[in-house]
Computed example of a mutant assay.
Amino acid sequence: MGKAGRAKSAREKIKEQQELERSREQRRKVVTYFSVGVVAIAAVGAGWLYAASRSQSEEAANGLAPTTVQADGSVVMAKPGVTKPVVDIFEDFQCPACKQMEEVSGSTFRNLAAEGKAKVVYHPITIFGQDPAKSNSIRAGAAARCVADGKQWVAYHDALFKNQPSETVEGFKTDQLVTWGKEAGVTAPGFDTCVTGQKHAQAQADYSVKVNTEQKLKGTPTVKLNGTELENTVIFAPQELRDAVTKAPK
């Protein structure tokens, strides 16, 4: 083979070697990109699963902590001797966001009280200033005040949120409020006449003004832990809520 032939052969070998290296590099890049993509997808998936686990509602524990209806209309749920941390729940039976919070985190509040990890205090108030929502809320709040037994109050509380009407129509009518009370197991003497006569309507309105003024509420639901308002990202995430309460000063 002449010099020209040998030179051509060498050039071809070099070219083949370069092509081989380019192919290998391309494969390395593809593998790298794929690996990074898999890791990224896994990270996103893990993050979503973690977030989902934190927002999943708890199963309700068997039995409630002792529940006492106070003279002012607030309701205390706590095991004997538990005074802190204090979880104050300010909610309006007509408020859609309050209903949602109860559906998501209601069992967490009750479980914490049943476990002796918190003193939970419900404050049913009227936050609305315009009808029909305002009148709806006052009727429901006044009806709840007709229930003196703590366990029955909790059942009625749940029934009111379950049957919450639209904010734009007249709802929580007195005959409905009586029916839902009976369905919830309310046996308080004079419950029917207390509800239909709206015996506690003025007390509900006055208490709402007092609480709104003293607590400087911006809306409902508002949850305070030892007097400090919790963010919505906490009260709508059961695990975040539990963590905040269990880590609070006793």
Rank of each mutant, 00 (worst) to 15 (best):
M1K: 11
G2Y: 10
R6K: 10
A10H: 11
A10E: 13
R11G: 11
E16K: 15
E19P: 01
L20C: 07
E21N: 12
R22H: 04
R24N: 13
E25C: 01
E25V: 05
K29Q: 14
V30R: 14
T32D: 12
F34V: 14
S35P: 08
V38H: 09
V39W: 13
A40Y: 02
I41G: 11
V44W: 10
G45T: 06
G47F: 14
Y50M: 10
A52M: 10
S55E: 15
A60W: 12
A61Q: 15
A65T: 03
A65E: 03
Q70W: 10
A71M: 07
D72F: 10
G73Q: 00
S74M: 09
V75N: 00
M77C: 07
M77H: 03
A78V: 05
A78H: 08
G81F: 06
T83W: 14
D88L: 08
D92P: 00
F93A: 05
C95N: 13
A97I: 04
C98W: 00
E103P: 00
E103I: 03
V104N: 02
T108M: 11
N111C: 04
G116S: 04
K117H: 13
A118P: 00
A118V: 02
K119Y: 13
K119A: 07
V121A: 06
V121Q: 05
Y122M: 08
H123T: 11
T126P: 03
F128W: 14
G129E: 11
G129T: 12
D131N: 15
P132Q: 12
A133D: 12
S135C: 08
N136Q: 06
I138P: 01
C146D: 05
V147A: 14
V147H: 09
D149N: 10
Q152I: 02
V154E: 04
Y156H: 12
H157Y: 04
D158P: 00
F161N: 00
S166P: 06
V178G: 02
V178R: 01
W180H: 00
E183K: 05
A184P: 00
A184M: 09
A184L: 04
V186Y: 07
T187Y: 11
P189A: 13
P189C: 12
F191M: 03
V195W: 08
T196P: 03
T196H: 05
Q198T: 13
Q198V: 10
H200G: 07
A201V: 02
Q204P: 02
D206V: 10
D206E: 15
D206F: 11
S208L: 07
V211C: 04
V211W: 14
T213L: 09
Q215I: 01
L217C: 00
V223P: 00
V223H: 05
N226T: 07
G227S: 08
E229F: 01
E229I: 00
E229S: 01
N232H: 14
V234N: 03
I235R: 05
Q239P: 01
E240P: 01
E240C: 04
E240W: 05
L241T: 05
L241R: 03
L241D: 02
T246Y: 10
P249Q: 13
P249M: 13
